[in-house]
Each structure stands twice: as C-alpha cells, then as structure tokens.
Simulated assay, not measured.
Amino acid sequence: MVEKEVIVKNPHGLHARPAAVFVQKAASFPCKITISKNDKEVDAKSILAVMSLGVEPNEKIILRADGDKEEEALEELIKICENIEM
C-alpha cells in the first residue's frame, strides 16, 4: 500500500468536472484507491463518494492505493489534484 498527502490546487477543488476526471482515472487502475479528508475515507472510484467529501481548493487530502499499479495510480491522481488549469 502507498499513501500520499496532497494539497488540492485545482481552483474548483474536487467538484463536478475535476471529480469526474479524477474518478474516471481512478477507475482505470486495478488497485483499490481511497481518498481521506478529516478522518472520512471514501472509494475514489465512486463519483458520489468523492463529491460527498466536498474537497475545496487548497484543502489537504490523503490518497491511498493498494494493489497492482498502486504507485502509478497515485502518481496520476496527484497530477489531477495539482492541475490548476482544469
């Protein structure tokens, strides 16, 4: 299992379009992926779960991946969280 603390730099946080892009990318990996914010952990492959966290710009989240391609998955998802042009 790998985990990384990330500051969401996207000006929209993880709402609507950024959340959809994030979930679509997470679903493309075979490993289990979760997001945690304020001690609440959700499945990163569920759009409703991701949006329920209400991640705003400049908030800290923890991404965890466990299984095949876990490091690659985390790397790609961090890019989405840090993309300020989305």
Score class of each variant (00 low, 15 high):
63 L>F: 02
15 H>Q: 13
15 H>R: 12
10 N>I: 06
55 V>F: 00
60 K>S: 15
69 K>P: 00
28 S>Y: 12
69 K>I: 03
55 V>D: 00
34 T>K: 04
10 N>P: 06
8 V>D: 01
19 A>E: 06
43 D>C: 05
34 T>D: 03
13 G>N: 04
64 R>H: 10
46 S>Y: 01
1 M>N: 09
32 K>I: 12
85 E>S: 08
54 G>S: 06
77 L>M: 07
23 V>Q: 08
37 K>M: 15
37 K>L: 14
42 V>M: 09
43 D>T: 10
64 R>K: 15
50 V>T: 06
58 N>M: 14
31 C>K: 09
61 I>H: 02
84 I>L: 00
4 K>T: 09
30 P>K: 14
52 S>Q: 02
70 E>H: 11
49 A>I: 00
51 M>Y: 09
57 P>F: 00
16 A>G: 10
51 M>H: 05
8 V>Y: 03
67 G>F: 14
19 A>L: 07
16 A>Q: 10
72 E>N: 12
13 G>C: 05
36 S>K: 13
30 P>G: 14
52 S>M: 05
3 E>T: 11
1 M>I: 07
15 H>M: 09
19 A>C: 08
30 P>L: 13
82 E>S: 07
75 E>M: 11
68 D>A: 15
6 V>L: 04
37 K>T: 10
73 A>K: 07
81 C>Y: 04
62 I>D: 07
68 D>Y: 06
11 P>Y: 08
14 L>R: 02
56 E>I: 03
65 A>L: 09
10 N>L: 06
46 S>D: 09
76 E>V: 08
42 V>A: 06
19 A>R: 07
35 I>C: 01
72 E>D: 15
60 K>V: 14
53 L>Q: 01
50 V>L: 01
8 V>I: 13
58 N>P: 01
74 L>M: 13
50 V>I: 13
13 G>E: 04
8 V>N: 02
39 D>Y: 08
3 E>P: 00
32 K>A: 13
84 I>F: 04
12 H>I: 00
45 K>M: 08
74 L>W: 00
49 A>S: 13
77 L>D: 11
86 M>T: 08
38 N>V: 00
10 N>G: 06
76 E>M: 13
76 E>G: 01
67 G>R: 13
54 G>N: 08
29 F>D: 08
73 A>N: 10
13 G>A: 03
54 G>C: 07
67 G>T: 11
65 A>R: 09
77 L>Y: 11
50 V>W: 04
47 I>M: 11
48 L>T: 04
3 E>M: 12
35 I>Q: 00
47 I>E: 02
80 I>T: 03
81 C>S: 07
40 K>V: 15
14 L>M: 10
